[in-house]
Every structure is written in C-alpha cells, then in structure tokens.
Amino acid sequence: MSQSEFVRTMVQAGRRGFEGDLEEPGSPDEDPRGNALETRLLELLSTDTYTWDELLEAVSDDIESRLDDTLEELQAENRVRYSGRHGGYTIVGDDGE
C-alpha cells in the first residue's frame, strides 16, 4: 500500500468514525454505535502494558484486514478495480475524463 493510499484509507475511516459507522452491520460489539477504537484499546490495556508502537500495530492490523476484505468484495462485485493508469484502486467506469 502506498503512502497516499494509506492516508486516503485513514481519512475515510475517520469520516466513518464521525458518522458513527465504525462497526460493521451485524457486529457482535456490545456497543455498535459507540467508539470501537476506545473499546479495543481498553481491552488491550486491561491485559498488559503497551508502548505506542505496540498499540498502533494492534489496532492497525484490524483496519488492514477490513480494508483487504472490503476491497476483495468490491472487486468481486465489479465496483472497484486496481488500475495502474490511475496509480491504484479506482471505481469501475471512472476513467477520470
């Protein structure tokens, strides 16, 4: 993943967070409209002490998995494709013209 893709992904994730959509529909989370990151951090810290880098790695693994799964689903639905011409993932039919 390029740096620009990472930044774009984080911005989109942040936007969803402000809309209260951090949890997927049907999520088993006890607080589906709450702060999923806060919940995850509290779970981690209840078991041990972590450095900043360890916490970052623990919570970013989840977003990487979710991003990968979502991109696979969108590609299978032919809604998104990887385009070398556009330098990354793009919406199908978006030729930029």
Rank of each mutant, 00 (worst) to 15 (best):
residue 1 M to C: 09
residue 2 S to M: 05
residue 2 S to E: 08
residue 3 Q to E: 15
residue 3 Q to R: 08
residue 4 S to M: 07
residue 5 E to L: 06
residue 6 F to M: 11
residue 6 F to P: 00
residue 6 F to C: 07
residue 7 V to M: 02
residue 8 R to N: 07
residue 8 R to Q: 11
residue 8 R to I: 01
residue 9 T to K: 07
residue 9 T to G: 06
residue 13 A to R: 10
residue 15 R to W: 12
residue 15 R to G: 09
residue 16 R to H: 09
residue 16 R to M: 11
residue 16 R to N: 12
residue 17 G to E: 05
residue 18 F to K: 05
residue 19 E to T: 01
residue 19 E to A: 14
residue 20 G to K: 04
residue 20 G to H: 02
residue 21 D to R: 08
residue 22 L to T: 06
residue 23 E to I: 00
residue 24 E to T: 11
residue 24 E to Q: 12
residue 25 P to N: 03
residue 25 P to R: 04
residue 25 P to L: 04
residue 26 G to R: 02
residue 26 G to M: 04
residue 26 G to K: 03
residue 26 G to I: 05
residue 27 S to V: 04
residue 27 S to I: 05
residue 27 S to C: 07
residue 28 P to H: 10
residue 28 P to M: 02
residue 28 P to G: 10
residue 29 D to M: 06
residue 29 D to T: 11
residue 29 D to Q: 07
residue 31 D to G: 03
residue 33 R to V: 12
residue 34 G to F: 01
residue 37 L to G: 03
residue 37 L to I: 10
residue 38 E to Y: 14
residue 38 E to G: 07
residue 38 E to Q: 13
residue 40 R to S: 08
residue 40 R to E: 14
residue 41 L to S: 02
residue 41 L to K: 03
residue 42 L to W: 07
residue 42 L to S: 09
residue 42 L to I: 08
residue 43 E to T: 08
residue 45 L to G: 03
residue 45 L to K: 09
residue 45 L to P: 00
residue 46 S to P: 04
residue 47 T to S: 14
residue 47 T to E: 15
residue 47 T to K: 10
residue 48 D to R: 13
residue 49 T to R: 15
residue 51 T to S: 15
residue 51 T to P: 04
residue 52 W to M: 15
residue 52 W to Y: 12
residue 54 E to Y: 01
residue 55 L to H: 01
residue 58 A to S: 12
residue 58 A to D: 05
residue 58 A to M: 05
residue 59 V to C: 05
residue 60 S to I: 14
residue 60 S to K: 05
residue 61 D to V: 04
residue 61 D to M: 12
residue 62 D to M: 10
residue 62 D to E: 13
residue 62 D to N: 07
residue 62 D to F: 11
residue 63 I to K: 04
residue 63 I to T: 12
residue 64 E to W: 02
residue 64 E to N: 13
residue 65 S to Q: 14
residue 67 L to T: 15
residue 68 D to Y: 01
residue 68 D to L: 09
residue 69 D to T: 14
residue 70 T to S: 15
residue 70 T to R: 14
residue 71 L to T: 03
residue 71 L to Q: 02
residue 73 E to F: 09
residue 74 L to N: 03
residue 75 Q to A: 13
residue 75 Q to S: 11
residue 76 A to I: 06
residue 76 A to S: 15
residue 77 E to R: 15
residue 77 E to G: 08
residue 77 E to D: 15
residue 77 E to T: 11
residue 78 N to I: 11
residue 79 R to E: 13
residue 80 V to P: 00
residue 80 V to G: 00
residue 80 V to T: 09
residue 82 Y to R: 02
residue 83 S to E: 01
residue 84 G to L: 05
residue 85 R to K: 14
residue 86 H to A: 13
residue 87 G to D: 07
residue 87 G to I: 01
residue 89 Y to I: 00
residue 89 Y to E: 00
residue 90 T to M: 04
residue 90 T to I: 11
residue 91 I to K: 07
residue 92 V to A: 05
residue 92 V to N: 04
residue 92 V to P: 00
residue 92 V to S: 04
residue 93 G to Y: 01
residue 94 D to L: 09
residue 94 D to V: 03
residue 96 G to P: 01
residue 96 G to M: 06
